[in-house]
Design a protein around this nucleic acid. Structure first.
Lengths: 127, 127
DNA sequence: ATTATACTTTACCAACTGGCTAATTAACCG
DNA sequence: CGGTTAATTAGCCAGTTGGTAAAGTATAAT
C-alpha cells in the first residue's frame, strides 16, 4: 500500500480511532469492550474495520483467548511519527515565542502556566 | 468536514505533502518552486491539490505577489498534533526501555548513541 | 446437539482522494 | 493589443474509506 509513516498518520486521522487508542492506553480490552462506547453511533463491524486500520498501522495488536480478541496498544509507530514532528520543533518553539510576544504586547502579561488570559487565547490560529 | 486534529494528521499522511512541508521549512517558496522536484512524477495541478490540502489543514499559508503565490509554513497545527502524541509519551518511553533491556539481553550491550549493533536493530517492529 | 456469545467476512453504497488533461484566470512584458 | 508565465478550475476516472445489513465462523455453555 503506502509507507509506514503515512499509514501511521492516516490511522490517527480519525477521532474514533484516536478514541480507541486512548481506551487501550488504560489497558488491554476485547473488541466488544472497545466497541461498547461507540455502539450508539456505529455498528460492531464498523469498529472492527477501524481496529483493522489500527492493526495494519501496527498500533494495535490482537491476540486470541477463546472467542475473545484481546487488543493491546503498540506505541512503536508513534515514536517514528514523533521523530518526524521533532524536525519541526525549532519552528514550533519560534511560533510559541511569537505567541508569547504577541500576548505580551496585547495583554501586557507574560506566559505563565496558570495565567487565565494567556490560556484563553491559546487556541488562536495565527500569531 | 472533520475536526482540526484529523485534518492535520490526514494532511501529514502523504509523502508528497510531507516533502512539501520539508521544502517550506527551508523558507518561503512559490507554487512552481515547490512543484519543481515533483514534476517528474506528477503534474502541476496535482501539486496544487496537495497544497490545497495543506492549506485547509492550516499548515501552509498562501499569499499573493503579482502572478506568483508565495507559500509559507505554519506549524501551529503541528503543536496540537504534538500535544496529542505527548499523551503517549510514557508508553513510548516504556517501549524504548523494553528495547534497551531486550538489546542488553541479546547483544550484552547497552544503548549508546553510536553503537552499531543497537542501531542496526533499531527498526525492529516489536520489542 | 443446540443455542448463545464474540467476532469477522461479504457485499453493497455514497463520499472522498489522488491523479490526469484541457480550459480558464490573472498578471506581466513588449 | 497579443503573447507568455503562473497558477487555478473543471471535468473525468479509478481506487480507497467509512459506513451498513446480513451471513458466516469459532468457541463455550447447557
Amino acid at each position: 500500500m503506502q509507507d509506514a509513516l503515512s499509514r501511521t498518520f492516516s490511522a490517527l486521522a480519525d477521532p474514533t480511532r484516536r478514541a480507541i487508542l486512548a481506551r487501550l492506553r488504560r489497558g488491554e480490552a476485547t473488541v466488544s469492550q472497545i466497541a461498547e462506547p461507540f455502539l450508539t453511533q456505529m455498528t460492531l463491524p464498523g469498529v472492527t474495520k477501524h481496529l483493522k486500520v489500527l492493526e495494519t498501522a501496527g498500533l494495535v495488536t490482537k491476540s486470541r483467548d477463546a472467542q475473545w480478541r484481546p487488543c493491546t496498544l503498540n506505541v512503536a509507530p508513534l515514536t517514528d511519527a514523533t521523530a518526524w514532528m521533532e524536525e519541526y520543533r525549532v519552528q514550533m518553539e519560534a511560533s510559541l515565542d511569537r505567541l508569547g510576544l504577541y500576548l505580551k504586547s496585547v495583554t501586557n502579561t507574560t506566559l505563565e502556566p496558570n495565567d487565565d488570559d494567556a490560556a484563553a487565547d491559546n487556541d488562536a490560529q495565527t500569531v
